[in-house]
Simulated assay, not measured.
Amino acid sequence: MRVLVVEDDDDLRYAVAAVLRGAGFAVDEAADVPAADEALFVTTYDCVVFDRMLPSGDAADYVHGLRRAGRTVPVMFLSARDTVADRVAGFAGGGDDYLVKPFAVPELIARVRSLCRRAGVVRPPVYRCSGLEIDTAQRQVRRNGVLLLLTNKEFALLEVLTVRENQAVPRAELIERCWDEMAEPNSNVVEVLISQLRRKLGDPPLIRTVRGVGYQLTTTETGL
């Protein structure tokens, strides 16, 4: 899942981004509305975390404009403005969630994860196919009842493939959904992670290589 963090305080932006990356999200950063607008133009995000007060003004005004333009990306406002009126204004401006600073890190992660599940296609809390069970709320994966220990990045990649079950997912899309803008698209990060996933998922294999396209999670259990 890919998240954009928009915060003009460099230290706080770095800290929030680091926390979310540590929880398995791909995170891009922007320090103001123009940078956020450019990022949203070129990249599809599962969630955007906005500081309310930015150098260019109240981010709620910008989000209101996004909503008027039909943009539905889930938005969380992260702000020191903590009155009821402030929170109401944030929701009225198009925010989906509002977290007051200072905040608890586990709550931030849980709320961002919840918002990400709202983006795009509807994600059920538990996926099941071919003996594979993926619990997105508990972040647990089982194969034939056996708990598998996956890294955050492995889980993210598997979740994307599962949402698109029996469809070929292009390598470029996997990079966009699971890595941030710092990833090197010509590196072999996807291939390495796919190899690790195949080993952990065991036999019969579920992830098939679609040559010239990308990878596919298949219920036919004929992955290569």
Rank of each mutant, 00 (worst) to 15 (best):
Lys200Asp: 09
Glu173Gln: 13
Ala59Glu: 04
Glu165Ile: 15
Arg113Val: 02
Val3Asp: 08
Trp179Ala: 06
Phe41Leu: 12
Val88Asn: 00
Val63Arg: 02
Arg211Tyr: 15
Gly212Met: 02
Ala23Leu: 00
Leu161Ser: 05
Gly57Cys: 08
Leu157Met: 14
Val84Thr: 13
Gly120Pro: 03
Leu197Tyr: 04
Arg177Met: 06
Ala104Lys: 12
Leu12Val: 11
Glu154Met: 08
Leu99Trp: 05
Pro55Asp: 05
Gly212Phe: 03
Asp96Trp: 01
Leu66Asn: 04
Val105Asp: 01
Val122Thr: 14
Leu158Thr: 01
Pro34Trp: 06
Arg52Glu: 00
Arg177Asn: 05
Phe50Arg: 01
Val48Lys: 01
Arg142Thr: 10
Gly120His: 07
Leu157Lys: 07
Arg117Ser: 12
Arg81Glu: 11
Arg81Lys: 11
Glu29Gly: 01
Arg117Lys: 10
Tyr14Gln: 15
Arg142Asp: 06
Ser187His: 00
Asp9Pro: 00
Ala80Phe: 01
Pro124Ile: 08
Ile109Cys: 00
Ala80Ile: 06
Leu40Ser: 13
Glu38Val: 15
Leu149Cys: 12
Thr222Ser: 14
Arg52Ser: 05
Asp61Gln: 12
Ala69Thr: 02
Asp135Pro: 07
Val42Arg: 14
Gly57His: 06
Asn152Met: 11
Gln140Tyr: 07
Ile194Gly: 03
Ile194Thr: 02
Leu161Gln: 02
Val16Trp: 01
Ser130Lys: 06
Met1Gly: 14
Asp61Phe: 06
Val192Trp: 08
Asp82Thr: 08
Arg81Cys: 13
Leu193Ala: 14
Thr136Cys: 13
Ala92Met: 11
Asp28Phe: 04
Cys47Tyr: 11
Asp96Thr: 04
Thr220Trp: 11
Leu20Cys: 03
Leu148Asn: 01
Leu4Ile: 02
Gln196Met: 12
Leu99Pro: 00
Leu40Gln: 06
Ala26Trp: 03
Gly93Cys: 07
Ala17Gln: 00
Asp180Glu: 01
Leu115Arg: 11
Phe155Leu: 11
Tyr14Lys: 15
Gln140Gly: 02
Arg199Cys: 10
Arg171Lys: 15
Asn166Gln: 13
Val75Lys: 01
Arg67Asn: 10
Met182Trp: 13
Gln167Pro: 04
Phe103Gln: 09
Val6Asp: 03
Arg71Glu: 13
Gly24Glu: 04
Gln216Met: 12
Glu107Gln: 12
Arg111Ile: 09
Thr209Ala: 13
Tyr62Val: 03
Thr151Met: 08
Glu181His: 10
Val88Met: 15
Ile207Ala: 05
Val42Gln: 14
Pro124Met: 07
Leu174Tyr: 04
Val27His: 02
Leu150Ala: 03
Ser56Cys: 10
Glu38Asn: 10
Thr162Lys: 06
Arg171Tyr: 08
Gln196Val: 04
Val126Cys: 12
Asp82Gly: 15
Ala156Asp: 15
Ala18Trp: 08
Leu150His: 04
Gly70Val: 01
Val141Met: 12
Ile207His: 07
Arg21Glu: 14
Ala110Leu: 07
Leu99Lys: 04
Asp203Pro: 09
Pro124Cys: 09
Leu20Ser: 05
Glu173Asn: 05
Ile109His: 00
Pro125Leu: 06
